[in-house]
């Protein structure tokens, strides 16, 4: 009897969250899948069951080059955020020796992430622009004689902004993993004559893997689906899958957008499934 009531109370307690996810996550995603088989003309979407949207999408070489481009952004961003995230987390966890300073430095890293992504992208304009700080400095120092054009509105700018936006997503989970490493392991390694690099390679990196996996999932999925960074930072000169979807939405070609969305979703889920083999998320909390 008692377990019956407690079960019922669990179901009661979870129901609001389950309901919201059902209405605003599950049903919308199913809607996308359904609509991806629909037809459309200039004015409206027409219920149907056709494969034209997929045929057109997968048969177009543009799609493949857009996917390649998006993957390029994702891999580059992942690589740089991983290097930065690991180094920063390692510094905080193993080289800052007082807990107070660890907290202060950690807060220092997180504060910029509480502001709007769009504002953080815009903030690169005065720095990278043709007359921006970096170009002026380079010209004044005599390193270049003309402003570098590739700094803003380029692939470089997109990856730079992505790294700037999402580096914290790597720092936090890796730092979390590192703080759980038993310090006596590190000391034992050192007593046994391991160099700093050997300790890093055979103890710290393997034990930080869950954090690395979680951070990677975050960064890769967010960059794969991104469209606003690409639009703002490439100045409309590059494309990504998300941007393609948002353009199709803008043109009211909803079934085409839905088909792109389904393919993107499958891609992202495959990547995540691969990464989840490395980590059990529920254990890491």
């Amino acid at each position: 009897m008692a377990s019956d009531t407690s079960k019922r109370s669990s179901y009661f307690l979870i129901s609001p969250m389950a309901l919201i996810f059902a209405v605003f996550l599950v049903i919308p995603l199913l809607t996308i899948v359904v609509v991806s088989f629909w037809d459309y003309d200039e004015y409206r979407i027409l219920p149907d069951f056709i494969f034209e949207n997929y045929k057109y999408l997968l048969g177009s070489s543009v799609t493949w080059s857009i996917y390649l481009n998006t993957l390029k952004y994702a891999v580059l961003t992942w690589f740089f955020t991983l290097i930065i995230g690991f180094t920063v987390a390692y510094f905080l966890a193993f080289h800052v020796r007082s807990l107070t300073w660890q907290i202060v430095f950690f807060m220092l890293c997180t504060i910029p992430f509480w502001t709007s992504n769009i504002i953080r992208m815009i903030s690169w304009i005065p720095f990278l622009g043709r007359n921006g700080l970096l170009n002026s400095a380079l010209i004044n120092l005599g390193i270049v004689d003309q402003p570098l054009e590739f700094l803003l509105f380029s692939d470089f700018a997109v990856v730079l902004a992505d790294v700037h936006l999402y580096a914290l997503f790597m720092v936090v989970p890796i730092f979390n993993s590192m703080m759980r490493i038993d310090r006596s392991l590190v000391e034992a390694a050192r007593d046994a004559g391991a160099s700093g690099f050997e300790t890093l390679k055979s103890i710290i990196v393997p034990l930080s893997k869950p954090g690395i996996a979680i951070g990677s999932i975050f960064v890769i999925t967010v960059v794969m689906g991104d469209f606003i960074t690409v639009r703002l930072m490439s100045g409309g000169q590059s494309a990504s899958v998300g941007l393609q979807i948002s353009n199709e939405i803008g043109l009211l070609q909803y079934p085409a957008a839905a088909a792109s969305a389904v393919v993107l979703l499958i891609t992202v889920l495959l990547i995540v499934t691969a990464l989840l083999r490395l980590v059990d998320i529920r254990k890491e909390l």
């Binding site: 996550l25 049903i27 996308i32 794969m224 909803y254």
Partner: peptide, 25 residues
């Protein structure tokens, strides 16, 4: 519900936007 929460986190935001927009439409 746990996996729905994880899914909600990794599904690209534009898909949520598109899905809800289509549903309401």
């Amino acid at each position: 519900v746990f996996y729905l929460a994880i899914a909600s986190l990794i599904v690209p935001s534009i898909l949520i936007s598109l899905g809800i927009g289509l549903l309401f439409n």
